[in-house]
Amino acid sequence: MSAEIPLYLKRFMEQRSDLLVSQNTEPSEGDTTTLFDTTYGLRVTKTEQDGGIWFNFSLVPSPASINSHPEGKDDFYDINPMWDTPYLTEGSGNPWGMSSAEINRRFPNIADDFDDWRLSRENAMGMQMWDPDPEVVDRAVEDDVGEMVWKIEGFLMACWMALQPDVLGVGYKTVSEIYLLRKDDNDMDLEFQELINSEIEPWEALSAWVEY
Rank of each mutant, 00 (worst) to 15 (best):
P27Q: 05
P61A: 07
M13G: 01
P27A: 06
L9K: 00
T32R: 14
Q23N: 09
T25A: 14
S17R: 10
T38P: 06
V21M: 13
A3P: 01
D75G: 14
N56A: 12
K10F: 11
S62G: 03
G52K: 15
Q23L: 12
K46Q: 15
T39F: 07
R11E: 15
T39W: 01
G72H: 09
M13P: 00
R43W: 00
E14C: 03
F76R: 08
P6W: 10
L9E: 06
V21Q: 13
G30V: 04
P63E: 08
H69A: 14
A3I: 00
L59G: 01
Q49R: 06
T39E: 11
K46T: 06
Q49W: 08
G41W: 05
L42G: 01
R43T: 01
F55M: 01
E71V: 10
G30D: 11
E26Y: 04
F57A: 00
L59K: 13
W54K: 05
I66R: 06
R43C: 02
G30H: 07
Q15H: 03
S17V: 10
T34A: 13
P70F: 07
S58I: 03
L35N: 03
T47A: 05
T34V: 13
E48G: 03
V60Y: 07
N56Y: 05
R43I: 00
N67D: 07
T32S: 14
T39C: 08
A64N: 12
S65P: 03
R11G: 02
P61E: 15
Q15S: 12
G72M: 08
E29H: 10
L20N: 05
E26C: 03
T25I: 10
Q15L: 12
E4P: 00
E14Y: 04
D75M: 08
K46M: 10
T39G: 10
T47K: 14
R43P: 00
